[in-house]
C-alpha cells in the first residue's frame, strides 16, 4: 500500500480526460437522481399518496414524476400531480438519467467492441441516442 499517487499533480493524474470526467459524472448524477427521487417521494406524500396509492405506485411516481404514472391509482384529482413543478422535476430527472444511462451503455459496449473505429461508431450512435431520447422524453412530459 503506497500513497505515491497522491503526490501527483491533477494534470499528471489525467483528471481532465473525458473518460475521467464521465466517471465522476456517473457518480454525481447518481446522487443527483437520488435527490430528485426523494423530492418526488416527499411531494407524493404531501399530495396525498398516503391514502390513495400503494408502495409500488409511489415508487413508480418517484422514479419518473409524470402524471401518466399515477393515472391507474385511486387518486380522485390528479391536477396537482401535473403541475409545472413536477414537469420540471421530471425533465431534470430525464436529462440526467439519459446522460447517465447512455454513458453506461457505452461503457458496456467498450467491453466488447475493442477497435478504434468500432468505438467511434458507438460514440456517434450514443450521441444520437442521447439527443433523440431527451427530445422525445421532454415532448412526452410536457404534453401529458
Amino acid at each position: 500500500m503506497t500513497t505515491k499517487s497522491r503526490n501527483l499533480s491533477i494534470a499528471k493524474r489525467g483528471l481532465m480526460s473525458f473518460e475521467t470526467v464521465m466517471w465522476v459524472f456517473t457518480r454525481l448524477s447518481a446522487l443527483g437522481m437520488y435527490a430528485l427521487i426523494v423530492f418526488g417521494l416527499i411531494g407524493a406524500l404531501i399530495m396525498g399518496a398516503r391514502n390513495n396509492m400503494n408502495f409500488a405506485d409511489v415508487m413508480r411516481w418517484a422514479f419518473m414524476p409524470n402524471v401518466t404514472h399515477v393515472e391507474s391509482t385511486d387518486l380522485v384529482d390528479t391536477t396537482p400531480w401535473s403541475s409545472p413543478l413536477w414537469k420540471l422535476t421530471a425533465s431534470a430527472l430525464l436529462i440526467i438519467a439519459v446522460g447517465h444511462g447512455v454513458h453506461g451503455l457505452v461503457v458496456i459496449a467498450d467491453d466488447y467492441i475493442a477497435t478504434k473505429k468500432g468505438r467511434g461508431i458507438v460514440r456517434i450512435f450514443s450521441g444520437v441516442m442521447i439527443l433523440s431520447m431527451i427530445v422525445i422524453g421532454l415532448y412526452l412530459i410536457w404534453t401529458s
Binding site: A97, G101, V102, G104, L105, I108, M129
Partner: peptide, 10 residues
C-alpha cells in the same frame, strides 16, 4: 439491471 432499464425505458 442497467441494461434492462435502458432497454425498457427506450
Amino acid at each position: 439491471g442497467g441494461l434492462g432499464m435502458a432497454i425498457f425505458i427506450t
